[in-house]
């Protein structure tokens, strides 16, 4: 990197010059990084967007065999009151028959098996599956033909995983807090 000393009339120490090059280069890289971070990070969810991340719901609003759709984090949330027949159908399925194996008991709260809470966004490309349709009586996604069962598990179609179960907790016997 350093040039022969005689070109500069014997002045200067090549090591010092190298140090200045490297220090200047490092400072430039650091400066670019410091500029890029805020410019990129501003596109991530803002504080108020994150603040809307949880919601509460009164389960007594859903009647048996029906589903209520509410909006949560900009996406639909399915809250389904399953009939005993639907619960039995979900529990009888062998795990080996599933594309994304998960027991029905892992997708609901013990003792509250009738209430199934799911993010209503197809795991393929995010369309909203329609209630009670498809080969398994759960949901059917009209966009690319994914069939979900009464536990919201993918059975047939291009979706790679089961409908997502959001994190939620029971505040009272009939009140849940989602997110």
């Amino acid at each position: 990197m350093s040039e022969p000393e005689k070109d500069h009339g014997g002045e200067g120490d090549p090591n010092r010059r190298d140090f200045i090059y490297i220090a200047a280069g490092a400072a430039a890289v650091g400066a670019v990084g410091a500029v890029v971070v805020p410019l990129v990070a501003q596109m991530n969810p803002a504080a108020d967007t994150l603040a809307m991340a949880s919601t509460e719901f009164d389960l007594s609003k859903v009647s048996e065999g029906m589903q209520v759709v509410i909006k949560w984090r900009g996406k639909p949330l399915f809250i389904r009151y399953r009939t005993p027949k639907e619960i039995a159908a979900a529990q009888e399925v062998k795990l080996s028959d599933l594309k994304d194996p998960q027991a029905d008991s892992d997708r609901v709260t013990a003792g509250k098996e009738q209430y199934l809470i799911l993010v209503g966004s197809c795991t393929h490309l995010g369309c909203v599956p329609t209630f009670g349709e498809g080969q398994f009586g759960g949901w059917f996604c009209p966009c690319h033909g994914s069939h979900y069962d009464t536990s919201g598990r993918i059975r047939v179609g291009p979706a790679p995983t089961n409908l997502e179960v959001p994190t939620y907790e029971y505040l009272t016997d009939t009140r849940v807090k989602i997110g």
Binding site: V40, M43, N44, P45, A46, T49, A53, R73, G74, K75, S121
Partner: peptide, 16 residues
């Protein structure tokens, strides 16, 4: 999430 500016396509997405 970075592209949509939230957890779904929403106001931040439309604006950008």
């Amino acid at each position: 999430t970075w592209l949509q500016g939230g957890f779904a396509v929403d106001q931040p997405t439309l604006n950008r």
